[in-house]
Amino acid sequence: MAIEETGENPIKNEGDIVTCRKLIRNVATTAGFGMTDVTRIVTAVSELARNVYVHAGSDGVMRWQLLYQPGKIGIQLVFEDYGKGIPDIDQAIEAGFTTAGTMGMGLSGVKRLMDEMHIQSELGIGTTITVAKWGRAK
């Protein structure tokens, strides 16, 4: 089976976090990412999907896409929710900051696990977090 280049998965309940992880583990492995990178990517998925589930308080979605550049393979993940939004993005990505009684290491951790991270958020409208990871093409 040829790998699909793009796809999405809803995030509505805790079970969807598991589905997202499984899906991306498959996609990243098939695309040719190494074990360590796959684990990094999947850990980031786990963090961001959980963020959508915990903070958004409504439905969200994860979209993924494979990216190609000469000699490189990349994966881009977009997590979109229609929740209350992030008031202060700089504060949110500071290690140790939390509004949910959790560790507060999620976003700052994801930033270190991935190569690119972009957060767009509007209060009362929702948040879109885009991350990407690059690896050497097989």
């Binding site: 360590t36 684990t39 990094r40 290690a95 560790m103 290491m105 999620g106 951790g109 270190r112 696990l113």
Partner: peptide
């Protein structure tokens, strides 16, 4: 495992 150790460090745990 080494992979887990690396991600834990990245996550800052």
């Amino acid at each position: 495992r080494p992979v887990i150790a690396q991600t834990l460090v990245h996550l800052g745990i």
